[in-house]
Nucleic acid binder design. Sequence first.
DNA 1: GTCTATATGGGGATAGAC
DNA 2: GTCTATCCCCATATAGAC
Lengths: 223, 223
Amino acid sequence: MDTSIFKGSVTEPEGLTKARLLDVAERLFADHGIDGASLRQITKEAGVNLGAVNYHFRTKEGLMVTVFNRRFGPLKQEQLNLLKQAEQQAGEGASTVEKVLEALLMPALRLAKAADTERQIAMKLIGRIVTEPNPRIQDLLCSQQAEVRTAFTDALRRSLPQLSSADLTWRLELLWGALAFVLCNPGGMERATGGVCNPADTQAVLAQMIAFFSAGLRAPSVT
Amino acid sequence: MDTSIFKGSVTEPEGLTKARLLDVAERLFADHGIDGASLRQITKEAGVNLGAVNYHFRTKEGLMVTVFNRRFGPLKQEQLNLLKQAEQQAGEGASTVEKVLEALLMPALRLAKAADTERQIAMKLIGRIVTEPNPRIQDLLCSQQAEVRTAFTDALRRSLPQLSSADLTWRLELLWGALAFVLCNPGGMERATGGVCNPADTQAVLAQMIAFFSAGLRAPSVT
DNA sequence: GTCTATATGGGGATAGAC
DNA sequence: GTCTATCCCCATATAGAC
């Protein structure tokens, strides 16, 4: 007697395989880097077939781009929305540096509606992609983030009219790098600092970064 | 008539193959990441045989560790020497934050006695290793840098007695991340900022970072 | 949509001649 | 010390059965 209900090639619920692939790929990309995570590993852990990647995403790069957009799209929107809110609150005058920084940093550190472990995975993914050696991925990121970059540069220029344009650009790059580093390797950071720094503690990181960087941004121009 | 002097397996000058391997490996590790650079590519570009890696360094990891130490050993020494000098100059009192930061940042950004292209390669290598996903490499870096980390943390603690220990640790991590990011991908940074930021301009980066981070470090404690 | 099987290429490591 | 040749494993991508 055969008690199994699903046998042979029974059609799965629409999109389930695809979603499982995306979830596992995101986690493994975050933990081992893009090149460091193989399709074999991803499909095995997702409990789906290797061929499914080809069917749903065509190539590994297709999978990567989809993972990327699923996470960066909403993030970008949230950053722009928060910035808009901050500027509306400020009314006629310029927003404070702190408010602008919060709009930029909070979404990246918090990641909307994410459960705790999911949040940590997504955070690491961002860090990995930002520091990815592969030039194709860098290009992708660069174009994706261009809108965010200009929006926040403009906002900060209004908040800090005394700062030269070059200095502002430089300091935003430094801030971006520090953020990427924090996101990239939370475990290593905690270990290196003897447990003092825990990047998963969103509130603490946010407070630290805002205090540190708003003071830095207010430093006199050097050019 | 055979005019070639070296033919067949003529013994090369001592250490030449080894040095060529190290130089090329450093460049390719810097450009493509550790995993991204294959031994085949390295040996081919170095004009040496694949087997030479096994003979001189045993494994790829052996090669990587040697490249690593050749570059980080002197860097570490230079950082510690400059710090010592700064503290001697300061005499009884504490060194200024700026002097301490300069001792930390300048060697990394300048890299002693390096020609221009060599310097850029070495800078990228540092960035790559700092952001490397592979946990073995992270451990190596962490232990190598422990001495530098504590020396500079102690120096800054003396310069900034009002800053809580946790805040200082956090801010140094953020600084370290920003530095890594700058070193890691100079081309991408220049492109993303429309040429405004050129990480190869040591003096400019140093001035920017010192102004930005010394102001940040002087911000009030948040904990 | 899902599976098995395989094509094709590249990786690191090594043995053994010279 | 250097070279060739090769082992063996793993990668991505794909073809074709179900």
